[in-house]
Computed example of a mutant assay.
Amino acid sequence: MAGKVMHAVQFDGYGGGAAGLKHVEVPVPAPKKDEVLLKLEARSLNPVDWKIQKGMLRPLLPSKFPYIPASDIAGEVVEVGSGVKNFKAGDKVVAMLSHTTGGGLAEFAVAKESFTVNRPAEVSAAEAAGLLVAGLTAHQALTQAAGIKLDGSGKPTNILITAASGGVGHYAVQLAKLGNTHVTATCGARNIEFVKSLGADEVLDYKTPDGASLKSPSGRKYDAIIHCATGIPWSTFEPYLSEHGKVIDITPSPRAMFTFAVKKITFSKKQLVPLLLTAKRENLEFLVGLVKEGKLKTVVDSKHPLSKAEDAWAKSMDGHATGKVIVEP
């Protein structure tokens, strides 16, 4: 592929939203020793993508401008680096790119072999691309932070999942129900039946008084809260936590980090746990396997062509997507 150019979407600086994205022609990247070059069939967007553009993660991200955003990709291997052992041209895969360098909103991308996983024929490119940041975050929150055993062997656990119709939330509901859990979930009124269809036992409209208070309709105290929304203070959660209950916050604010520190210092039995994703290849393989077996599904909010990537960007920024926003060729 040396010397060839490809279509890509990038931004040159902070801010600008969807209007700040630029369609450009750039060279097709060459895979290094430990990388594979993929022709992309799907990418999924995550809030972190537009948060990088907004400058919310500066000075860490991005490493430099111009920057091609998106980390969650699925496609076909077209070339492999000299040290790659597990993949060959023609393999269908799903891969996660580093947020530092990005590269997903393009026709081709290079991915590290160490975070590339085979995609079985039963799993579509869109389904696989959705799994990465959102699915892995839900998996880590439940299994590591909340201690849920997804084979159903653990002790009965009451869980609350906020923003349960979104990217992380819709995976969290499905994964939680593989464990021995009772799931209460919050979402907007239009998505109540959808969240029930994912397996939630009780669903609250977050705009009603009961939904805003997060009180379980059946009066249960929560052993863990997977907090996928924003702007809810600790004082709202605390009355409904069990004695050793945890709030697992997937987008911790400075205020949340302060609460985390206070709870630690005072040896509080109730804890706030900030979650930063530690992506692991074996966890991605596990999730892909669940999709193949029909035990987990990626719900696609909308699909957009790369030529209209700004529409997908605006949809993600709006914050009301049901499931995942996907960009296809």
Rank of each mutant, 00 (worst) to 15 (best):
V5E: 15
A8L: 05
V9H: 01
G13L: 11
G20S: 12
P27L: 09
P29K: 00
A30I: 13
P31A: 06
K33N: 14
V36N: 03
L37T: 02
L37D: 04
R43A: 14
L45N: 03
D49Y: 04
D49M: 02
G55N: 09
M56A: 14
F65M: 11
P69L: 01
S71D: 10
S71H: 02
V80R: 14
G83Y: 07
N86S: 14
A89E: 15
G90V: 02
K92N: 14
V93H: 01
V94H: 00
L97C: 08
L97K: 00
T100A: 15
T100E: 14
T101N: 11
A106D: 08
E107Q: 13
F108S: 03
V110W: 01
V110R: 00
A111T: 03
E113P: 10
S114Q: 13
R119L: 15
S124L: 11
A128W: 00
V133M: 05
A134Y: 00
A134T: 10
G135E: 03
A138P: 03
H139K: 03
T143W: 11
G147F: 12
L150D: 01
G152S: 13
G152L: 13
S153I: 10
N158V: 15
A163M: 06
G166M: 12
A172I: 03
A176T: 03
N180S: 14
T184Q: 06
A185D: 06
C187F: 01
I192Q: 12
F194Q: 04
S197I: 09
G199D: 03
A200V: 05
A200E: 07
D201A: 03
K207H: 14
G211H: 08
A212D: 11
S216M: 04
S218G: 05
G219N: 07
R220G: 06
K221S: 14
I225T: 01
C228R: 03
A229Q: 01
A229C: 11
A229M: 10
T230G: 02
I232Q: 00
P233V: 02
P233F: 05
F237N: 04
F237D: 07
Y240I: 05
S242H: 08
K246N: 13
P252K: 05
P252A: 05
P254G: 12
R255W: 00
K263T: 12
K264L: 08
K264N: 14
T266R: 11
T266L: 11
S268K: 09
L272K: 06
L277T: 08
K280L: 01
E282S: 12
E285N: 08
F286T: 01
L287Q: 02
V288Q: 05
K292N: 12
G294R: 07
V299G: 00
D301K: 04
H304R: 00
H304T: 00
A314R: 04
A314G: 01
S316T: 06
D318C: 06
H320N: 15
V325Q: 03
